[in-house]
Design a protein around this nucleic acid. Structure first.
Lengths: 219, 219, 219, 219
DNA sequence: AATGAATGAGGGTTCATTCAT
DNA sequence: CATGAATGAACCCTCATTCAT
């Protein structure tokens, strides 16, 4: 057997493994959304994935690991989208800020299943240091960028509000809008959430962030 | 035996029952905060209350009812404080709005244990219609009042923002601030949360809601 | 206080006690009939009696004692009726035998609640020596009398069957008829059971025990 | 791999499942006989089977279903033996009747464990419609055959007794004999029970059913 | 004598995990 | 790799018993 052949074999053995993991993580997300975290069992996840019960302890050592890896998956996905958005955005702080807000309400991140997952883990953060650690990383990086952008904008013009205060208001508002979308999607669409966020930015930085009509076209 | 004495005797038999219920509900709140909703068992609640396991099915028919009654308790408590705050507040819309915001961050409502409870139930709302119903009631009443106040204020001066949009931004921001207080209390104190909210109101209604320095003194 | 007075007082204290015991035993009988022995709890009995839960351990030391006393009650009642019937009966063996059979299907002994109790205890006899002992006493006394009567009758005429065999056949048939009355009362009335028993006696002792038409009038 | 081999493989996965079920049902029968129905727990059954507690809810969804399936098992087994006996029996009604009586006291059906089960379920029949339904089926089929045979015999000769009355007397006597065997096996052996039954048939249909000495040889 | 709140052992059941296939 | 039968700890709940009133 040639080295190339064995490599191929190795690939074949390991690559599907990663696919299975993702398949199971997606099943976990659906199960948490459908049944809640306390009613998510190895059995509900396996059923959601269309596989047998034993498979989870085969690919993850335990249910705890599955949940942690699911959280990691969502955290990483969020970070990736957010960095890509910054890369694609223009140079102006306003544009970059808008890009971040838009990605927060982009369908691929902001769907109800994933929101359910975020809040499920957040709500157990107080009792699970491991969850907290994973979430905290995301928050720190995100906060820094947002604050920097707010500082930049503040320096450009003369606005009454303190930059940090306004920045933390935005992140809080985003989280609150996510909650509203989770609790009653009929009363809060992604578009409405985006509008509310942009209105906030306009009132903090009058003159920037165009006017509502244009926003809608842009999205 | 006088009538008063017999009344006392009668009370003694029935009153403790309600006291026990409240005692157990408070234990449930602590357990949810300490262990998370999925790790809150009849046993953890009983231990938290310093009583035996059997007592919970004696006063609540099932664990499910205990949880529902706990949610009801928190919902009712919130509503009560909020109505009292409105009663005490002055006549001006600005004052009434400020009163509502202050009550949202008042220690008796906004302590970390209760926040943990709110988010625990919110996060299972998608899979538990009963939870949703209880939460929805609270939200509806609250939203209406907030929007009415925003409408009033908007009518008083000429501000650029749409009243509803701004109102929904406030409720979202409040929820987001609660989440931040739950996730990292070191980074978000009640006072900071209040400051951020008031800053939001100032930027939406320039001229109202005084200036930051005064806020701090007032609290 | 005179001696007479204290005796009266003592009576008053003890007499109702016995009444309560009987009241509770009757409630136990109803509960066993209604719920079965395995679903008869202290609570179902208390409810059936219209009294509080604690009362049973007050009058009986334990649930086990309550059940044993209930069995004793039924056993004693049966014995009493049966002895009275013999006292009232004439001198001829045939008459005495008929009297015994009639008492076995007399409404006061042979009602469905009590049948349910008999079979409930019988069915646990294998695992409960105490039950067996109580039941065995009844059986022994009853069997002896029946066999004696069969022997007497046999001696009077010349019948083909062995007396003991025929006697044991009768007791077995009686028990079987009780079971049929318990299982499907619509298919087996007291009168039918009596008819079947008398027909048995007639075929064992041709010439005795009149004919069916007369039996019916006699009952 | 041949088709036969794969069939074997397939069998190995599914067949043990049915075997386990029967194994557990047999354990249930032993437990009911040993402990009584009210003291038969999932734990006693599992211990009797030498397996773990969880296995019962794995193969039967609940304890209730285990009990129902146990009853069904005994009912079916009885029916099977009884039909086979009829098949093997000769053509004459007398022979067929004797065959039925013999099967009622055949060791494989009439052992004390199974009798305990029959009476355990019968005694709860009043409070459990599901038990009643299962038992009623057995009774109906059995009664019809017995009555038909009694009718046939009656038509053959001229006997004084009503066929139905005599038939119902036999079934009742059989049940009563079973009870006696359960309550005091020392006083009632299978042979004695058979003798008593045959004596009954002889006295109802004089001339048929040979004489006792021959019976003994035949069994 | 009677109540009913409280207890805690033990019931049925669920479920994460293991392991033979 | 994947399965699913089997395990047993831990869950929720019931219930016989105790005890303060």
């Amino acid at each position: 057997m040639t080295s190339a052949a064995s490599m191929t074999a190795a690939k074949k053995r390991t690559e599907p493994k990663e696919k299975r993991r993702v398949q199971l993580i997606r099943a976990t997300i659906r199960s948490i959304a459908k049944n809640g975290l306390s009613d998510t069992t190895i059995s509900t996840v396996a059923r959601e994935a269309g596989l047998s019960q034993g498979i989870i302890n085969l690919h993850f050592q335990s249910k705890d690991r599955l949940l942690l890896d699911t959280l990691s998956f969502v955290v990483d996905e969020y970070k990736t989208h957010w960095e890509k958005a910054l890369d694609r955005a223009g140079d102006s702080s306003a544009e970059r800020l808008r890009a971040l807000v838009e990605v927060d309400f982009h369908p691929s991140l902001c769907d109800r299943n994933k929101l359910a997952v975020w809040f499920a883990f957040w709500s157990e953060t107080k009792s699970r240091p491991t969850y907290r650690k994973l979430c905290a990383e995301r928050d720190r990086a995100y906060d820094q960028v947002i604050r920097a952008l707010f500082s930049d904008l503040k320096r450009e013009g003369s606005y009454p509000v303190d930059a940090d205060t306004a920045a933390r208001g935005l992140t809080a508002m985003t989280e609150g809008l996510w909650l509203d979308m989770l609790l009653s999607p009929k009363n809060m669409s992604r578009q409405q959430a985006l509008d509310i966020s942009m209105a906030y930015l306009r009132s903090v930085f009058p003159g920037h962030f165009g006017d509502p009509a244009l926003e809608e076209l842009a999205s």
